[in-house]
Design a protein around this nucleic acid. Structure first.
Lengths: 217, 217
DNA sequence: AATCGATTAAAACAACTGTTTAATACGATC
DNA sequence: GATCGTATTAAACAGTTGTTTTAATCGATT
């Protein structure tokens, strides 16, 4: 006797349930039984359809990245003929929206930041396929703002600074929820935060650019 | 028969071992048996000296904050007669050094950031006693830079931005280790990063201050 | 030397973990 | 309708977890 909501294949139900559970508890604290009960399937199904809990987790991560990129495509700021400042603003807005998406499919960013904060074996693959290309894109964007003469390490520090301002909203969500809930009350509030980070960073970057010019002239 | 290194009381050995294990694995994945074997005591000792694993964790967190504040006192930038920019620089340098301290006693910051990223019941106490005062101090420091007219929410966003740039080095350590290890190779490299964050932030803050003046005049 | 409270030790507890097994039910093919 | 591979189930497995129990040991006091 199949269960009530049997429209969706078992393996798909497992994958979706696993996204929820892994996002909520992390790989180590998520339990196979929890996943299976949410998917309304037997405990043995995880090992039947996916080889193991770990293999399921890997596939969940891959699926999450696909979904995140589907919902928040990076098309808008790929065009190189718009001003760098505007490209940076678009990039930050897109990234922050992706991070703060609390909808059903926004669990993906939780998974990823969890993986960064507490890496499993899966991190190295993620780095290569997803994170490095995104970082390279951001570097390409801020390069014209900061100037050609900029030190390589300086650029790296700027990159991390911009990422840090964004990721703060995810990694320290627990604190923001408790101290500054207004900042992330709704979508428009988050947009304002993105706008702020962009202006903050552009101001700093141009300032650094001026200093570079001075010191090398 | 007592064990070899019996100079230190059992409860102290347990506490120190617990700092290591909780920092490395987090509360949920740390095991009582691991802690006890590192402290060279029986498994039952945790429940004998501390009531439970959870109670031990609470005491470990409190101990860690005491140690962190002992090693990185906030005296230097408490004096209000030095320029705000310099106070901010000192604050950031102190904070980043505290975060990146990899020595034996630097495990404390690992514990704290872990607690922020994945809160237990203990977080609310930590917030009140340790984090809020530090945030208030930073707010007091940047207030003069950003100007009196600044919006309350704007100040909050700036606060988070500065914290985010610093915490990035802790929360996303796994990525920095893999992509930009030079940035945190040694103490002087970290100092340079602190200097960078300070300049980056000051540039942005003064820029915001100018914009505020324009829009309200 | 006997006694008492505090400490340590080994063992067992019950609950939970991921995984496996072995039996059953199903659905299509012959 | 029997047969065969697939899917599902309940049960059990072996390992680990935090905690408790019960007994042994120690050190000081009487």
């Amino acid at each position: 006797m199949k269960h009530s909501n049997a429209i969706e294949p078992v393996s798909d139900r497992l994958l979706h349930a696993a996204v929820e559970v892994f996002a909520e508890y992390g790989f180590r604290d998520a339990t196979v039984r929890d996943i299976c009960s949410r998917a309304n399937v037997n405990v043995a199904s995880v090992n039947y359809y996916f080889r193991s809990k770990e293999s399921l987790y890997t596939q969940v991560l891959a699926f999450s990245f696909r979904e995140a990129n589907r919902l928040y495509p990076q098309d808008a700021f790929l065009e190189k003929n718009i001003p760098s400042e505007q490209r940076l603003t678009l990039f930050i807005r897109n990234f922050l929206n992706k991070l703060m998406d609390d909808s059903h499919l926004g669990l993906h960013s939780k998974l990823i930041t969890r993986e960064i904060a507490d890496p499993t074996k899966a991190l190295d693959d993620i780095l290569k396929v997803e994170i490095v290309p995104q970082i390279n894109l951001l570097e390409e964007i801020i390069q014209p703002i900061i100037g050609i003469k900029a030190d390589k390490l300086t650029i790296q520090r700027c990159l991390l600074g911009i990422y840090g301002q964004c990721l703060m909203f995810k990694h320290s969500r627990s604190i923001i929820d408790r101290l500054y809930p207004e900042l992330i009350a709704d979508h428009s509030a988050i947009e304002t935060c993105a706008e702020h980070i962009a202006q903050f960073s552009i101001a700093a970057l141009t300032q650094i650019a001026h200093q570079q010019e001075k010191s090398t002239s």
